[in-house]
């Protein structure tokens, strides 16, 4: 069975908890290595490494750990908003507290935002990999180029550039209801945006653009 490492580098662990919920389904097809089960072992090779949480730039231990995970895994997935697009940790300040999405430190294969991604996401993702394809897989691959995505980017890159057609994908996707349609045009309630990136990843215009 393919092996999967699930590791949180310093996030809220909501992503791990959400993966744990799918454990009964996952264990049928995969060997899961995860600290919540007590079998975390970083000294072996993995077919998949699902890494959540941002990487602390002041902790050389975490940076080294991440690099080691990269070396030991065939496919490295940045899972959840913090790992993939930085999330709220982009706002962290102070000398002993600097974070970045993991793509800034190592090469990643897929980037899946979401705060946290619902349990089913991991299963469908692995299914897509098994079936080798699908456009959404390409999308998650293309997202690895981005280290920051949020409602702000949606407004700047899609709405203000005049590409928005007003389909409503972003408003329906936002977990904090930070996006509202004003006269058919999305507008961001800035104080509600937690930079999870779901809105822009769902935007048909943005995805059409980055996949071409």
């Amino acid at each position: 069975m393919p092996s999967i490492l699930v590791l949180d580098l310093g996030g809220c662990e909501g992503c791990i908890a959400s993966i744990m919920n799918s454990y009964p389904k996952l264990e049928k097809k995969y060997d899961l290595y995860i600290s919540y089960l007590g079998n975390l072992n970083l000294d072996r090779e993995f077919d998949f490494a699902i890494v959540s949480g941002p990487v602390s730039l002041v902790s050389s231990e975490k940076i080294d750990l991440l690099k080691k995970v990269r070396e030991n895994s065939k496919i490295l997935v940045a899972y959840g908003s913090c790992a993939s697009v930085g999330g709220i940790f982009l706002y962290s300040k102070g000398q002993n507290c600097r974070f970045a999405s993991i793509g800034k430190v190592v090469d990643i294969d897929y980037s899946i935002p979401g705060c946290p991604p619902a349990s089913r996401t991991i299963i469908n993702f692995l299914n897509c990999i098994e079936k080798k394809g699908g456009r959404f897989l390409e999308l998650f691959k293309a997202l690895t180029k981005y280290q920051k995505l949020s409602g702000f980017d949606l407004i700047d890159d899609v709405v203000l550039t005049g590409l928005c057609v007003g389909c409503g994908a972003c408003t329906l996707s936002c977990p904090t209801e930070a996006l509202q349609l004003v006269d058919g045009v999305p507008d961001l309630i800035v104080e509600k945006c937690i930079r999870c990136g779901t809105c822009i990843v769902r935007c048909p215009k943005f995805t059409q653009n980055i996949l071409r």
Partner: peptide
Amino acid sequence: VGLPCQAQFLRHMKTFPLVESDFAN
């Protein structure tokens, strides 16, 4: 029932519910 762009993001939501508040199910 919607337009191609809406079908795209609904399919995305159904396949990859990125946030738990999604009504994808």
